[in-house]
Amino acid sequence: MKKILRHRMFWPVIALLALIVLNTIARPSFISITVQNGQLYGALIDILRNSAPLMLVSLGMMIVIATRGIDLSVGAIMAVSGAVALTIIADSPSPDDLGTVLVAILVGVLVSLLLGIWNGFLVAVVGVQPIIATLVLMLAGRGVALLITGGFITTINSAPYKFMAQGYVIGLPFAFFVSIAAIVIVALIERRTALGVLTEAVGINPEASRLAGVRARGIIWGAYAASGVLAGFAGILYTSNIMAADANAAGLYIELYAILAVVLGGTSLAGGKFTVAGTVVGVFTIETLRSTILFLGVPSAVAPLFLAIVVVIVVLVQSQRLRGAVAKLAQALRPKKPEVAR
C-alpha cells in the first residue's frame, strides 16, 4: 500500500480519476458512450479525440524538459506546419488525392523538424538559455505562418486530410490512434533504446554525465528536434480538425498546456526523471478539465482562469513537497534550519 502511495504516478492518476468521478456525478451522461453507425460517441470519446494535438506536443515537451530545457515555440511550429500543409493542398489541383495529402503532411513535418533542429542548435551549440532560444521562434514563427497563408485563413476541402482528425477507424476516432502511435513510438524510443536513461542522466547532472562519457550535446539537440517533429504532427491534426490554417489561433497557448501536462504527470521542471505514462495522464487531466469547464457553461475564453488556478495549486504542492522534505531534514537535525546554498 505504501508503495502505491509513494509511486510517482499515484497523485496524477488520483487527480484524473477524481475529475472523472466529479463529472460523472454532475452529469451521468459523461461516461455514457453511444454507438452510432458503428462509431462511438460520448464525452470521453471527445476527450480522446480532442486531446491528440496536446498529446503529441506534450510528449515532445516532456523530452525537452527532461534535459532541463523548455520549448516555447511548439505553438508557433504547429501554426507553421499546418500552414505549409494546407497551402500545399490548397494549391494542388487534386486536394482529394491521397498522394497530395501525404506530400503535404510530409513537407509540413519536415519544416517542423528543421525548426526543431534550429532550436536545438541555439540551445546545445550556441548555449542560449532554452526559454530565450525558443522565444525567438515563438515570436517569429507565427509571422512565418501568416506569410505562408498570405495573411488569410486558408481553408481546404480534402477528404483524406479531414479524415485524420475527424475520421473513425474500428469505431474510434483516427486522431486517437495517432495519439497512441505517438505514445508507443516515444515510449519505445526512450525505453527500448538507451535514449531515455541518458536523457535523464544529462537532465539530472550534466557534468557527471559528461565525465561518464555521455554525449550531452547530441541528446539535447535531438530532444528539440523531436519536439519540433511532434509539434509538426500536432499542427497537421489541428488544421485537419477545422480544415483551415489559422496562423493566429493554431496552437495558441499550447506550450503552456503542454508544460502543465508534463508537470502534472510528475516530471519536474528542473529536468531529470520522466514518465511517458505520467504525461499521458497529465494530458487527459487537462482535456477532462477543459471539458468540465465547458460543461459548467463557462465561456471557453474564461477557461484560462481555471487553468491558472490549477497551475498555482500544482506548483504550490510541488513546493510544499519541497518544504516537507526540508522540514523532515530539519527535524532530523534541529528545529530551525534556514535553506542555505551549500
Partner: peptide, 14 residues
C-alpha cells in the same frame, strides 16, 4: 551501466 551505455551508443541498449 551509465558509462558503458554511453560508450555503446544510444541505439545499442544493453
Amino acid at each position: 551501466t551509465l558509462a558503458l551505455q554511453a560508450q555503446r551508443g544510444i541505439l545499442h541498449r544493453i
